[in-house]
Write a protein that binds this DNA or RNA. Sequence first.
DNA 1: CACCCCACCTGCGTGC
DNA 2: TGCACGCAGGTGGGGT
Length: 277
Amino acid sequence: MPELPEVEVIRLGLAPRLMERRFVRVTVGAKSLRRQSPVRELEHWLLGRKLTDLSRRGKYLVFALEGGVTLLVHLGMTGHLLLGSESKPLPQLDHIHLVFHLDNGLELIYQDIRRFGQVLVFPPGVPPAPLREVGREPFSRQVTPQWLSAQARGRSRPIKNFLLDGRILAGIGNIYACEILFAAGVHPATPAGRLSLKDWGRILKDTRRILKEAIRQGGTTVSNYLNSHGEAGLFQVQLLVYGKESEHCRRCGAPIVRLIQSGRSTFFCSKCQKMPD
DNA sequence: CACCCCACCTGCGTGC
DNA sequence: TGCACGCAGGTGGGGT
C-alpha cells in the first residue's frame, strides 16, 4: 500500500504528537504479522523509554528511543498507523494487531488487514538489519543521473523493475513507478542498461517532482490508505496511468495499456512511452 | 550474480 | 444469492 509519499505523510502526522512521549504499555493482538518482535522484547525495550526521533528510510518508519533503542515499522500493503486516545477512542476497527500506549493517554495503533507488515525492535548497538538493504533516498544528493546510469550498466531487467528495486532507489512502489515512467516518456519494458544519461536525467527529475507533489497532496488513496489521523490522500486525482487501463491517455488520447511485469501490473501509454531504438 | 516466481494474507469486484 | 476467480500500495526466500 504505502509507498514513500504515504509513509512520509504518516511520519509528518505522527512526529509532533509523539515526540518526547514515553511508552507505558504495549497491547498485542492474537494474530502476528509476517515479521514481528515477540511481546516480551517489545515490552522490555520500549516501556519507560521516550521517543527522541522519528525518521523514514524508504518505506520504513524508524522510531528512535532513549538509550539507542530502535523501533522499525513497515506497513506492507495494507498497514495503518493511527492515533487514538483513551478519552477519544477510534471507531471500532478490525485487524488491530498492536497498540502502543503513551504517557499522555495517546495510543499509537497498528492496524493491518493483510498482515504483510513488520514491527521490529532492536536493542542499543544493534543496527536494524532490514535497513542495511535499503537503497538511496530519491531526494539524496548522492542520487544523480550518473549514479543511476552506473547502477543500471549491464542490466537487462526492465526499467519498471529497476525502479521497484528498493535496494537501489528506496521507496518507489507500483503506483509511482508507473507514473514516473509515463511522465518521463519511457516504455516500462526498456532494459535499464539501455537508457541514456539524458533518459536518467528525466527519470530522476520526474521521480522527485511526482514524489514531492504526492507528499504535498497527502499521498495516494486508491483503496484504503489513510494517514495517521484516519484521512485519505488526494494524489489519486493526479494519477495519469495507474489503474487507468483502456482509458484515454491524457496527453495523446491513445488507450492506456496494462501489462504484467514480474507478476505486477504496469500501466502505460504505448504511444507516449517508446523504447529507445 | 541477476533475474523471476510465488508465497505470505484478507477483502472486494466481476462474471457465471 | 452463491461461488470461483482475479486482483490489490509490500517484501523475501528459493529456483533457474
